[in-house]
Design a protein around this nucleic acid. Structure first.
Length: 749
DNA sequence: CTAGGGTTAG
């Protein structure tokens, strides 16, 4: 730096005139005291911008104060830690220092530990140790360790953290409560909750932070019950919970969706005089919003003395998630600052509560009004909405947007893109995105396995799973759900059985309800009802509705009345409102010709007041999603659609098509048992619309909310042949790709 | 002269 050209700070005249401090005359004893009172050093701490600090630096170089370690450290600390942070500059100053002391090292190690590049913290630590070994310079002290442990936690580097833990013990710092508390935090962030707990238990005298660290660890690590147990134990230890404790307790409580306990915590805070704070109020708001009491949230929000953007956003989520859409909108409009987080809250709340179309509308509005810049979270939520709707034009547009704006493809974003392309029916695009990523994590691999599974490529899914292991990525529970699902859709019975068996002993993953449901589905589909039933009997947890649903589906396929009756009875015990159970049972009766049973079942449904979910199919044309329900005549193009449909049937009949009349009766799923209802199934309407509005070369992509019926499946096959069109049909469980008269499911679905 | 724990959108 050109020191001479730097303007000087204006100092009182007698200082400007004073010569460089006579460092050699000062004894080591009072040295620090002397310089800590030096006006320049005092000025550093009052400085509020980095330009001013740089001027002080120049001054210090001129008057020699920079060569005093204490003064230089104060300057470095100001650059490294103050809100106007400039770590690079601090590091340069550090490199200029002839003799940095431990404090100086610690300042930089600390600054890096909470920076964007925590790895720098560890690198400096290593450097420090090497210099100590080779030149006997300063050695790390008890202040250094909490910082490097923090850095290891930020990096989720369990290996490094364990090494540092070992060093701590070697240095005889193994009972320093500050260090041990950081270790609890470290192990917990790396997901090693048991190690964290072991550290906690072995602390000789635990303080509030020790308790808070372990409670937070459990609360955030999905062990809410353990967190709450420790909260109660803490009071037995004679320590008073503070507001940080209460925030962690609220995290646990929010995860459990336990409103009753949440209210108790609220009154506990008030009764015990725990200092309220903005953050604590925000945590309470979040609890009320997520546990489903917008009323409580609003009451609190209205009386909060101070609100920040988090408070506003949390309240917004509360309204949107509870379906108070008008209130959500009003709240959004009245926000002091509609930053991207507010838009994200709105979009993701809609997307997660089954309103993907609304989510897309909000995203469009954001684009049009240009009021905030979409970020990663916006794009992830919007892509997920596209995937749900099957809005591929929109999804592809976002992909282009990402490329155009040079947005970094985070792994989360890659996962979302793979999911979107898979669910919209473009498996090749999904694979393209997958292959373009060079740092694949378990989510990316799992998403791709799921994509292959839903398109019926079971063998490829298994192959990908093997590649994943070659890449040393450890599968998780979701990976196995997708893998088993792939086996199930493709009828890879033996492979599925083997994977399921190996889950626990080889991969250390305890099979959950979802995995059992997949197995029941797989076995049942393949006709091994007996084996499926036995598997249910051995389940260590109570079977959920999905398990009986899978069994019932198998009964429909194989026409087993007896098992179907039992399965649906159990299913309805768990979910009395589950119309799917009635529909499937009725299908079984129809298949086996028990018409009187079908009739009485329909009566029972009416008595209970259950309406079946109407069949609904959608198709995207030129970026617009068109929806059809059964027998729909509300579409503006209704006439040409029905005209096309008639033409199709004439053409198919001359090609040997015969309407499968038993399907009319079987498909109670769809509508009344009117014969013509068969022709009016929503997917047929959507396909007809696709035929008249899409080019020959474009595949017809139809998304359906229920399963396809046999007749529609048959018709789609024939259309693909007679009209030479590719049809992709996504039903509730998977994709069917029709081409040249064949379906990718090989009629196994 | 320094240290550890916490709230919002995936």
């Amino acid at each position: 730096m050109a020191v001479t050209t730097m303007p000087l700070v204006s100092l009182p005249p007698h200082h400007r005139a004073s010569p460089p401090p006579p460092t050699t005359h000062i004894t080591t004893l009072n040295k620090d005291r002397y310089f800590s009172n030096h006006p320049t050093v005092l000025l550093i701490n009052q400085s509020s911008n980095s330009k001013q600090l740089k001027q002080i630096h120049a001054q210090m170089l001129r008057n020699g104060l920079f060569y005093d370690p204490f003064s230089a450290s104060t300057l470095i600390s100001a650059f490294a830690l103050s809100p106007l942070q400039d770590i690079d500059y601090a590091h340069k100053l550090f490199d200029e220092m002839p003799e940095p002391n431990v404090y100086t090292w610690n300042v930089l190690i600390r600054a890096y530990s909470s920076s964007q590049t925590p790895i720098q913290s560890l690198l400096m630590f290593t450097q420090m140790i090497n210099l100590y070994k080779s030149c006997n310079e300063v050695s790390p002290n008890k202040f250094t360790y909490p910082f490097v442990i923090k850095a290891a936690a930020e990096l989720l580097d369990i290996r490094v953290g364990k090494v540092i833990h070992g060093m701590v013990v070697k240095m005889s710092l193994g009972s320093d409560v500050f260090i041990l508390n950081s270790l609890i935090h470290f192990y917990a962030s790396c997901g090693h909750l048991d190690s964290a707990y072991r550290v906690f238990i072995n602390i000789p005298v635990r303080d509030v932070v020790s308790w808070n660290s372990i409670i937070t660890g459990f609360a955030q690590g999905d062990r809410a019950d353990d967190a709450l147990r420790l909260f109660h134990e803490m009071q037995g230890d004679g320590l008073r919970p503070d507001n940080v404790t209460m925030m962690s307790v609220l995290t646990a409580c929010t995860k459990k969706l336990d409103l009753k306990f949440g209210r108790w915590v609220h009154s506990y805070i008030e009764k015990n005089g725990i200092r309220g704070s903005l953050n604590l109020n925000n945590a309470l708001l979040d609890m009320y919003a997520k546990c489903g009491s917008v009323e409580d949230a609003q009451k609190l929000f209205d009386k909060m003395p101070e609100k920040d953007i988090v408070s506003w956003t949390t309240m917004l989520v509360g309204y949107a998630k509870s379906g108070h859409y008008i209130a959500a909108r009003r709240h959004f409009e009245s926000m002091p600052d509609q930053d991207i987080a507010a838009w994200n809250a709105l979009i993701s709340a809609y997307e997660q509560s089954g309103n993907p179309k609304e989510a897309l509308a909000i995203f469009n509005e954001l684009q049009l009004t240009n009021k905030a810049e979409p970020d990663n979270v916006t794009l992830v939520s919007t892509l997920s909405a596209c995937a749900q709707v099957g809005a591929m034009d929109m999804g592809g547009w976002i992909h282009v947007y990402i490329k155009k704006h040079n947005i970094k493809l985070s792994r989360h974003l890659i996962t979302s893109l793979i999911d979107m392309y898979s669910k919209c029916g473009d498996l090749n695009k999904a694979l393209e995105v997958f292959n373009s990523s060079d740092d694949k994590d378990v989510f990316i691999w799992s998403a791709m396995i799921a994509g292959l599974a839903m398109h019926g490529h079971g063998r490829d899914a298994i192959e990908l799973f093997e590649k994943m292991q070659e890449a040393n990525v450890k599968p998780n529970g979701v990976t196995f759900t997708n893998l088993l699902c792939a086996c199930s859709h493709t009828g890879l019975l033996q492979e599925g059985r083997d994977f399921f068996k190996k889950m626990e002993p080889v991969y250390g993953i305890t099979p959950g309800v979802k995995h059992y449901a997949c197995m029941v589905d797989m076995l049942g589909r393949a006709g091994h009802l007996e084996e499926a039933i036995n598997l249910i009997k051995t389940m260590p947890m109570p079977p959920l509705a999905s398990v009986y649903g899978a069994l019932l589906g198998a009964c429909k396929l194989h026409g087993n009345v007896e098992v179907a009756e039992q399965a649906s009875a159990r299913l309805l015990e768990l979910e009395p409102w589950n119309h799917g159970a009635y529909v499937l049972l009725s299908n079984v009766y129809a298949k086996t010709g028990k018409w009187d049973q079908v009739a009485s079942l329909r009566k029972r449904m009416k008595d209970v007041g259950l309406k079946k979910e109407p069949g609904c199919s959608s198709i995207e044309v030129n970026g617009v999603v068109h929806e059809f329900i059964v027998g729909d005549n509300t579409h503006t193009q209704s006439k040409p659609i029905y005209g096309k449909l008639n033409e199709v049937f004439e053409k198919l009949k001359s090609n040997g098509y015969e309407p499968n009349r038993s399907q009319v009766l079987q498909c109670v799923e769809e509508e009344d048992m009117q014969e013509q209802a068969l022709h009016l199934h929503s997917e047929k309407l959507a396909i007809a619309f696709g035929l008249i509005s899409l080019k020959q070369s474009q595949p017809i992509r139809v998304m359906k909310n229920l399963r396809v019926c046999g007749d529609c499946h048959n018709v789609a096959k024939l259309i693909s042949k007679v009209y030479d069109r590719e049809i992709l049909l996504r039903d509730r469980y998977r994709f069917h790709r029709f081409k040249a008269g064949e379906c990718s499911c090989k009629d196994y679905w």
